[in-house]
Amino acid sequence: MEHKYIEIKGLSKIFTRKKESVHALENIDFSVDRGELVCILGPSGCGKSTLLRAICGLDTEHSGDVFIDGRKVIKPEKTRGMVFQEHRLFPWLTVEENVAFALNGVDKDTKAELVQQHIDLVGLTGFEKSYPRQLSGGMAQRAGIARALVNDPELLLLDEPFGALDTFTKMAMQKELKQIRKKSNTTMIMVTHDIDEAVFLADRIIVMSPRPGSIVKVIDVDLAEPRDRNSYEFLEIRKEVFNEF
């Protein structure tokens, strides 16, 4: 049977809090092609992080299914790298130890090489021996991305990774993410509440609305690279997305 790389079928999730039930996700259906960069865009509380956690396999208590490569997702796997909202680096490990932590069953030399390669990739060369508390927010997030990429995942899941960064760092990081994608051709799904970010990065934007969390619209972003944030076409798509809120 034909199948898409990622298929999400009839995904629903209800949280019960103090007898009150919240419809976090209702009947989510979409698919993602290999190599695509999809942004899931929506206001806070629309269940977009919940959706990403379901794709990752961190949350499996829901109805409906997530299939990756035709296989149902039942637990996290290292072929799916996850970058969280907070960097979540282990504070007791240095940058290189944090990145190396993701590698299991790899011999020492290969490990060292892969770690260095990914630290260089995210532009943290020279900070290998630093502890997380010695890094700025942007640097820590880069280290988190390196850690998620070091296993060479087929799929990179990003949960508002740049949400806590200032505008300038954020723009630089978005550019870097594009560079990384160019080099590795990893499929990426990114959750964000930032319209500009979505239009700048995505091949496709999935717009979600809250309570119940559901897909309102899917917008294809056909923009030439490199994208100019001030071009007419960019702003047109931005407007189209904006009108959904």
């Binding site: 796997e77 290292k78 932590f101």
Partner: peptide
């Protein structure tokens, strides 16, 4: 729990 999730998503072996 946040760190445990990271470790899970990497399929870290038990003793590690």
């Amino acid at each position: 729990e946040k760190y445990i999730e990271v470790s899970k998503s990497m399929e870290t072996p038990f003793f590690k």
